[in-house]
């Protein structure tokens, strides 16, 4: 649309009714503790990978739960599975297994 000089912008607003329930269904099944997360962020605070990039386990869990999983793979690949997240979680969320599952599921989907 060069003649207009502008285009319609896609909305940023997430429509929760249209969200992708696929991943959360699979992961919730494999690791139900994903539902216990209260978003406190202690996992992101201790995360080894997060010291070097904008990786955030809390955000990933959030994204899976709200079905915004489009760009999640690139993010999940930053995880080192070092397990500190699990050690600090006040709700006993097995964040490491959640991330591992995402890696596995997304890897399979990719094939």
């Amino acid at each position: 649309m060069s003649e207009w000089g502008f285009t319609v912008i896609q909305t940023n607003q997430s429509d929760m009714d249209q969200m992708d329930r696929g991943l959360i269904a699979k992961i919730g099944n494999a690791e139900p503790s994903i539902f216990w997360c209260i978003g406190c962020g202690s996992c992101s605070a201790t995360c080894t990978a997060a010291q070097f990039n904008n990786f955030s386990p809390r955000r990933i869990i959030q994204a899976i739960r709200s079905g915004q999983v489009k760009d999640i793979m690139g993010e999940v690949n930053k995880c080192l599975l070092c397990g500190k997240c699990q050690l600090v979680c006040p709700r006993h969320v097995n964040t490491r297994n959640i991330l591992l599952n995402v890696k596995q599921i997304m890897g399979q989907d990719a094939i």
């Binding site: 429509d15 009714d17 955000r59 994204a63």
Partner: peptide
């Protein structure tokens, strides 16, 4: 219903 999902920092709507 409209709100911001502040933990992911995005506005959202839901019916």
């Amino acid at each position: 219903v409209k709100a911001e999902d502040t933990l992911s920092g995005r506005p959202m709507k839901m019916i």
